[in-house]
Design a binder for these strands. Sequence first.
DNA 1: GGACTCGGTGCACTCACTGCAGTTAATACC
DNA 2: GGTATTAACTGCAGTGAGTGCACCGAGTCC
Lengths: 204, 204
Amino acid sequence: MASQVVNQRELQRLETRRTLAEHALRLFSANGFDETTVEEIASAAGVSQRTFFLHFPTKAAAAFPDHEERVQDFRNNLGDGRAVGNPLLHLCEVMSSGLDTDSPMRRTRYRLLAQVSALRDEDSRTDRDYEEVVAAYLIQSWGDSIEARVRAHAIANAALGVCRASLIGWGDEGIDPRRVCFEILHRMLGSPFDGPLQSMQSMQ
Amino acid sequence: MASQVVNQRELQRLETRRTLAEHALRLFSANGFDETTVEEIASAAGVSQRTFFLHFPTKAAAAFPDHEERVQDFRNNLGDGRAVGNPLLHLCEVMSSGLDTDSPMRRTRYRLLAQVSALRDEDSRTDRDYEEVVAAYLIQSWGDSIEARVRAHAIANAALGVCRASLIGWGDEGIDPRRVCFEILHRMLGSPFDGPLQSMQSMQ
DNA sequence: GGACTCGGTGCACTCACTGCAGTTAATACC
DNA sequence: GGTATTAACTGCAGTGAGTGCACCGAGTCC
């Protein structure tokens, strides 16, 4: 019995956060993003407005409540850049397979994303965290240099752009984001950077 | 003599806009983005705060005053997607050569961009306009279908990501953005999408 | 059981941004 | 040349996001 009680406070905190995010997404979908006030979200979740900002830095961030964990998962899945035979192929695989199409909440999110520009802003913002992870991974596998850093960030940006478009295509047009994402990523990054990878290392 | 007087009002309007943008960038650089209020920018430019918002929709937009014209120029340079032999190669050329490294103001902008997250948000926002232009161009040359739309947006996103990273690499590390951008874009989009372009059309 | 921590609250504040009702000067029209 | 119109700009009052601060009260630690 005691095993259930891990941490009362932590449980309550997570519950509040979950409830806030749930009501936020519901209200954004039902009434629109701009038409929904933080006050509304908070009182729908039964807490004060001040509490909302204890959990999320911005109104839009409530639409991406699991962001930090997802970035961490992604980092773990990517692993060490030096430990992989073909880093770019590995990147294609991890990125496309990481597109979570399981929960209906995510679908709602990306459907919204295609319409609400404030949420695309937030999405771009969250992408920057992924960009850092991908860039760090690539620099790790290529070795550090100015050129490598720029290339790493360029490829990270490009790959994230493909993921974003795939997810919006999923929310908007119903395509299979994993398949499309992998296909395009693989074509972009697979062979083209395969042979010339040496020329890239020679630039250090 | 009369030839000089094209339009008094238009001239004044552009002058106000230019002055606002100039002071905005100056104050952002000197004191930081968050530390600068719209009121400060406006009074530095000798106009009211209300006038600022007559010229720019947001505080951050003042850092990108020539955005609309640049998008229009880009659209013109890209031309008709059906009129070009190799649309993707043409895209690589137009995108990388469009990176304007002439004015010192642009350099300041991208140096700022690497640091101020609110400006990167604005940059992502402006990129969406370019995304539409690129996507429209690609759809025009490939023909329209769900797959083509998703692919077009994916490639547009990816290419813009490369441009963004190149420009930040310029502001931040001093690399030549045109060379780096073209090199990476060409590798990503040149040959890989060259042969298999047929398979893409077969998906319609 | 007392000290402490921490999630949540209320309040007052700043600041970006908007709607509206002006004013003034350039321009178009006759 | 005089008049009507337009459009850049202004002032003001308002909304709503986000913050700093002092505080409460329940869970937690020893």
